[in-house]
């Protein structure tokens, strides 16, 4: 199983990133929490559909679980269909987020928790 965490930088010490589609990096771990690699999110600069493109990137890299903050409706739809399980509630850093996940403290997400930005799928705002 491969776990991806949305991050602002590469490596396990980087700050975790709330935004899914527009994060700069995905840091990848195996199910035991061993860091595998960091993938630059080439989709973040997309004019439209960054969430969808980011999902595509994760699928290409055989990711099963993603730990992130805010996921818009299109990206959620994409991940549900692509078989990626989403957990939200990132901590300050990638390492801390991983720990939180391994301790079962993150929430699985089945519906989008951010509203859509049409013309740009960035989804920044938590639904209240």
């Amino acid at each position: 199983m491969r776990i991806a965490i949305s991050a602002a930088g590469a490596g396990p010490d980087a700050p975790a990133e709330e935004r899914f589609g527009r994060c700069a990096w995905f840091v990848i771990f195996d199910e035991h929490g061993n860091v595998q690699e960091s993938i630059a999110n080439t989709a973040r600069s997309s004019a439209e559909g960054a969430g969808v493109k980011s999902t595509q990137l994760l699928l290409r890299n055989n990711i099963d679980v993603v730990l992130t903050g805010r996921v818009g409706p299109k990206a959620m739809h994409a991940m549900l269909n692509g078989g990626v399980v989403v957990y939200t509630g990132v901590a300050a850093t990638v390492n801390e987020t991983l720990e939180k996940y391994l301790n079962g403290q993150m929430k699985p997400l089945a519906v989008p928790n951010a509203r859509q930005h049409a013309g740009d799928t960035r989804s920044e705002r938590l639904a209240t």
């Binding site: 951010a114 509203r115 859509q116 930005h117 013309g119 920044e124």
Partner: peptide
């Protein structure tokens, strides 16, 4: 149109 939709989201 597109700019308004983009300005309203969220």
């Amino acid at each position: 149109g597109c700019p308004v939709i983009s300005a309203l989201g969220g």
